[in-house]
């Protein structure tokens, strides 16, 4: 497949892997030799190199995020070239590597968001208290990126143009088998009620963390739960309202122009909100470190309010798409 977007995706993932490999070798040196009290030339060199490495990583993670968007958008636009594919689902179903690529990319998005927040926090402590933790975390992220590069490579190189794939209609249907089918089988009433409860909980947790300036983990847990519930709700009910079709459960078709790209307005705030609430849990434990306590006290409320802002944006968009929908699901609701 010599499609330009595919070439770009492969190129970007290889570049990001290389950047992280470079950063990882540096991380080893940091873990071994870092000593902030020392004024030795080695220490000075290490300190200067942190500027390079964190710049590399900021770019790497930014490009990682953009490549997630490009990956989904590209899967959408490739769907025209395969028999049976109507949207990204069909393209992801082409071979066993499609879905893992997507999931790894999403995981990397969250990991990079957390890392960037930690990096920002650490750079505000005059003795860089988190530096070892930060670079150890980076070593954990490396296998994710390398795996993503390999899996994505397989996904794109093993695309058989003549293969007949199955699309959302079969995967996300209550009659089929597997997780996707079970999710699609959840009744709208149940999923909407759960969504509302999770919304209330996550907003409450966010307000609490923002006002008290501690216990960020609470927001992280609630945020993660709200994320999962939101995805389930999109598949099991919100998508139905957007398509105005009682049995079409696809989470990707909402990204299409035909539905006003409403999917992007749902997913982007949801992902940002989740990333922010996850990082809240990684920020608040450092409150007790002298050099960080003030920064944590300033940052945690900002992160929490931002997370809430994006969550509320997501909930409002979801509510709006249900509200304007001409689909009435009398028999399902009552």
């Amino acid at each position: 497949m010599l499609n330009p977007a595919i070439l770009v995706l492969l190129m970007v993932s290889i570049i990001i892997s290389t950047m992280l490999l470079v950063a990882a070798t540096f991380a080893f040196r940091i873990l071994r030799h870092w000593d902030i009290q020392s004024g030795s030339e080695l220490q000075l060199r290490l300190e200067r190199r942190t500027y390079l490495v964190s710049t590399l990583l900021i770019w790497a993670f930014l490009f990682e995020f953009l490549s997630l968007l490009l990956f989904i958008y590209n899967a959408e636009s490739l769907s025209g070239q395969f028999v049976g594919a109507m949207c990204a689902t069909g393209v992801l179903n082409l071979n066993p590597w499609g879905w893992p690529t997507l999931f790894l990319k999403i995981a990397m998005f969250f990991v990079s968001a957390i890392w960037l927040v930690l990096n920002y926090l650490d750079n505000r402590g005059y003795d860089y208290p988190l530096i070892r933790f930060k670079y150890a975390l980076l070593l954990l992220a490396l296998p994710l990126v390398v795996a993503e590069t390999i899996v994505q490579w397989l996904h794109f190189t093993e695309m058989e143009p003549n293969l007949i794939t199955s699309c959302c209609g079969t995967l996300f249907s209550a009659d089929a088998q597997g997780i996707s089918a079970e999710v699609s089988g959840i009744t709208p009433a149940k999923s909407i009620v759960t969504l509302a409860i999770s919304a209330i909980l996550v907003i409450a947790a966010g307000v609490w963390v923002a006002l008290r300036g501690r216990s960020g983990w609470l927001l992280s847990i609630m945020g993660a739960a709200a994320f999962v519930i939101a995805l389930l709700a999109i598949i099991s009910s919100i998508s139905l309202y957007i398509y105005e079709h009682p049995h079409h459960h696809c989470p990707f078709c909402i990204l299409k122009q035909g539905h006003g790209y409403v999917g992007y307005f749902l997913y982007i705030p949801l992902f940002l909100a989740t990333a922010l609430s996850l990082s809240a849990g990684f920020v608040s434990p450092w409150r007790k470190i002298v050099s960080l306590s003030q920064t944590v006290a300033e940052m945690l409320p900002v992160i929490s309010w931002l997370a809430l802002f994006f969550f509320i944006q997501f909930y409002l968009t979801a509510a709006w798409s249900v509200w304007v929908s001409r689909l009435t699901m009398m028999e399902v609701w009552w």
Binding site: I36, Q37, E47, Y126, D127, Y128
Partner: peptide, 8 residues
């Protein structure tokens, strides 16, 4: 100030 990193 002798142990502060360059940033600070």
């Amino acid at each position: 100030i002798s142990s502060l990193p360059e940033r600070f």
